[in-house]
C-alpha cells in the first residue's frame, strides 16, 4: 500500500536517515522501533509531507507519492499524530479536534461550532476518553487528555493510513488500553493501515502485526511479531549498547595513547 525506498535525510552535519526501505500493507499495524534520535519521527514527518527527503522515493498504491504539503498528504489519505501533538493551547478542545479541518456553514463560511462540538463529543466517546468540557482551552487539560485529543483527531478523520508517533507516551494504563483497543478495532475493520512508533514492548506485542527497527539510519530488522520476542528485541538493544560502549572505550584508549605520545 505504502512503500518507502532509499530515503535519506540529513540536518546539516547530522544524518537522521541514511537509506530507509520499508513498506506498509493494507490493514496492517506496523511498529517502528528505534533508540532516541534514531530518526523515527523524521521518517514519519517525511511520509506525512511535513518535511522533504534528501533522496529516495515513496509509492502509494503503486503510484509515485510526492506529498507537497501536509494538506496534500491528508488529501491522499495519510494523517499523523505528531510526537509534540500539534495542539494549540489557547484553542478549545473542539477547535483543536478540527484544526485545519474546520466545519463551516454554507454559503457564509463561518465556523459551525455546534457541529464541531457534537462531532468532537462523539469521537471522544467512541474512544472512551472522558473530557468533561469541550470549550475550555486545551492548556487546562492534563498531558494524557491532550494526547487523547491528538489521537482522536487523527483516528476519527477520513485517513486510511495513520502515522502515530508515540501515541501512548503520556497515557495512563487505562487510557492507553483504550487507544490500543481503538487501533485493534480499526485493524479488524481492515480499512486502515497504521504505522506506530512505540517504546514499550508490551504495547508492541499487544497491537502490532510486524515490527521494523530503525538503527544507524537504516531498517536493521523487519519481522512478523510472531517470529520475534521481547528477548530478541531486547538483545538487539543490549547488543547495540555494548557496541557503543566498546567504541567509546576504544576511542578513549586511542585518545589516551595519543595524549601519552604527545607528552613524551
Amino acid at each position: 500500500m505504502l512503500r518507502v525506498e532509499h530515503i535519506s535525510k540529513s540536518f546539516g552535519p547530522t544524518t537522521a536517515l541514511r537509506d530507509v526501505n520499508l513498506h506498509l500493507r493494507k490493514g496492517e499495524v506496523l511498529g517502528l522501533l528505534g533508540d532516541n534520535g534514531s530518526g523515527k519521527s523524521t521518517l514519519i514527518k517525511i511520509i506525512c509531507g511535513f518535511q522533504k527527503q534528501d533522496s529516495g522515493q515513496m509509492f502509494l498504491h503503486g503510484e509515485p507519492y510526492e506529498p507537497k504539503s501536509v494538506d496534500d498528504a491528508r488529501a491522499q489519505g495519510i494523517d499523523t499524530v505528531y510526537q509534540d501533538l500539534a495542539l494549540v493551547d489557547e484553542l478549545s478542545v473542539y477547535h483543536n479536534m478540527f484544526l485545519r479541518r474546520e466545519r463551516v456553514h454554507v454559503p457564509v463560511p463561518l465556523l459551525n461550532n455546534a457541529l464541531m462540538r457534537r462531532e468532537t463529543r462523539k469521537a471522544l466517546d467512541d474512544i472512551g476518553i472522558n473530557i468533561p468540557r469541550l470549550d475550555v482551552p486545551v492548556a487546562r487539560l492534563s498531558g494524557g487528555q491532550r494526547q487523547a485529543i491528538a489521537v482522536a483527531r487523527t483516528v476519527s478523520g477520513e485517513a486510511n493510513i495513520l502515522l502515530l508517533d508515540e501515541p501512548l507516551a503520556a497515557m495512563g494504563a487505562k487510557e492507553g488500553g483504550m487507544i490500543l483497543e481503538v487501533i485493534q478495532r480499526l485493524k479488524e475493520e481492515g480499512e486502515v493501515s497504521v504505522m506506530m512508533i512505540l517504546h514499550n514492548y508490551a504495547h508492541v506485542f499487544a497491537t502490532c502485526d510486524r515490527v521494523n527497527l530503525l538503527q544507524d539510519g537504516v531498517i536493521a530488522l523487519d519481522k512478523q511479531i510472531t517470529e520475534t520476542s521481547v528477548e530478541e528485541l531486547n538483545e538487539i538493544v543490549v547488543e547495540e549498547y555494548r557496541r557503543a560502549r566498546q567504541a567509546a572505550i576504544a576511542e578513549d584508549t586511542a585518545a589516551r595513547a595519543a595524549a601519552a605520545t604527545a607528552s613524551q
Binding site: V70, D71, R74, A86, L87, L99
Partner: peptide, 27 residues
C-alpha cells in the same frame, strides 16, 4: 467576528499559540 467565527481567526490564534504545531497540522 473574523477573529471569533472564521478559519482566519482560528489560524491566527494557532500560529501565535503554537507555530510549529500549526504548521504540522497543515496551516
Amino acid at each position: 467576528a473574523v477573529l471569533t467565527f472564521t478559519r482566519w481567526g482560528v489560524y491566527t490564534v494557532a500560529v501565535g499559540g503554537n507555530r510549529l504545531g500549526a504548521a504540522e497540522a497543515g496551516i
